[in-house]
Simulated scan of single mutants.
Amino acid sequence: MIPVRAAFLGLTDAAVLVAARERGFAEAEGVDLTLIRDTSWATLRDRLVYGHVQAAHMLAPLAVAVTLGLSQQPAELAAPYKLSVNGNLVVMSTDFAAALDQDLGARLEDPLATAHDFAAAIGLHRRKPVIGVVHRHSSHALMLRYWLASAGVDPDRDVVLRVLPPSLMVEAMALGETDGFCAGEPWGSAAIEAGLAEAVAVGERIWRRGVEKTLTFRRDWMERNPDTVDRLLRATAHAAAWCDDPANREALVSLLGRSDIVDQPAELIARALSGSILPRRGAPPVPIRDFILFSREATGFPWRSQALWIYSQFVRWKMIEPSGEREAAAGAVFRPDIYRRALAGTDLPMPGASSKVEGALESAQSVTTVRGALTLGPDRFFDGRIFDPDDIAKYLSQLP
Rank of each mutant, 00 (worst) to 15 (best):
Arg5Gly: 12
Gly10Ala: 11
Thr12Gln: 09
Leu17Asp: 14
Leu17Phe: 06
Val18Glu: 02
Ala20Arg: 07
Ala26Glu: 12
Glu27Lys: 14
Val31Phe: 03
Val31Ser: 14
Val31Leu: 14
Leu33Thr: 05
Ile36Gly: 00
Arg37Pro: 07
Ser40Gln: 00
Thr43Ala: 14
Leu44Asn: 07
Leu48Met: 05
Leu48Tyr: 04
His52Arg: 15
His52Pro: 00
His52Thr: 04
Gln54Cys: 08
Ala55Asn: 12
Ala56Val: 14
Met58Cys: 10
Leu68His: 11
Gly69Glu: 01
Gln73Gly: 00
Ala75Thr: 00
Ala75Pro: 05
Glu76Leu: 08
Glu76Lys: 08
Pro80Val: 12
Tyr81Lys: 02
Leu83Asp: 05
Asn88Asp: 15
Asp95Glu: 14
Asp95Trp: 03
Ala98Leu: 05
Asp101Val: 09
Asp103Ser: 08
Leu104Arg: 10
Leu108Tyr: 04
Ala113Met: 10
Thr114Arg: 05
Asp117Arg: 11
Ala119Trp: 06
Ala119Leu: 10
Leu124Asn: 03
His125Arg: 00
His125Asn: 12
Arg127Met: 05
Pro129Trp: 02
Gly132Cys: 01
His140Val: 08
Leu144Ala: 01
Arg145Met: 07
Tyr146His: 13
Tyr146Gln: 09
Trp147Asp: 08
Trp147Lys: 13
Asp154His: 01
Val159Gln: 02
Val159His: 07
Val159Ser: 01
Val160Pro: 00
Val160Met: 08
Arg162Ser: 15
Val163Asn: 09
Leu164Met: 07
Pro166Met: 11
Met169Ala: 13
Ala172Thr: 02
Thr178Trp: 04
Thr178Met: 14
Phe181Gly: 11
Trp187Asn: 02
Ser189Trp: 07
Ser189Met: 13
Ala194Gln: 06
Glu198Ser: 15
Glu198Gly: 11
Val202Pro: 01
Arg205Met: 10
Trp207Thr: 06
Arg208Trp: 02
Gly210Ile: 11
Thr214Tyr: 02
Arg218Met: 12
Arg218Phe: 13
Asp220Arg: 10
Trp221Val: 06
Asp227Trp: 04
Thr228Phe: 04
Val229Phe: 11
Val229Lys: 02
Arg231Gly: 03
Ala235Ser: 13
Ala239Gly: 04
Ala241Val: 14
Ala241Arg: 14
Ala241Glu: 15
Cys243His: 07
Cys243Asp: 09
Asp245Tyr: 02
Val253Ala: 03
Val253Asn: 10
Ser254His: 15
Leu255Pro: 02
Arg258Gln: 12
Ser274Trp: 04
Pro279Tyr: 11
Val286Ser: 02
Val286Ile: 15
Pro287Lys: 15
Arg289Val: 14
Phe291Ser: 10
Phe291Ile: 11
Phe294Cys: 04
Glu297Ser: 08
Gly300Lys: 13
Pro302Tyr: 03
Trp303Phe: 13
Trp303Lys: 02
Arg304Cys: 00
Ser305Glu: 07
Leu308Asp: 03
Trp309Lys: 13
Ile310Phe: 07
Ser312Lys: 10
Val315Pro: 06
Lys318Ile: 07
Ala329Ser: 05
Ala330Phe: 13
Gly331Phe: 01
Gly331Asn: 06
Ala332Phe: 07
Val333Ser: 04
Arg335Ala: 15
Asp337His: 05
Ala344Cys: 10
Ala344Tyr: 08
Asp347Phe: 04
Gly352Arg: 14
Gly352Lys: 12
Glu358His: 03
Gln365Arg: 13
Thr369Asp: 13
Arg371Ile: 11
Leu374Phe: 03
Asp383Phe: 06
Arg385Ile: 15
Ile386Cys: 01
Ile386Val: 15
Asp388Pro: 03
Asp390Gln: 13
Gln398Thr: 10
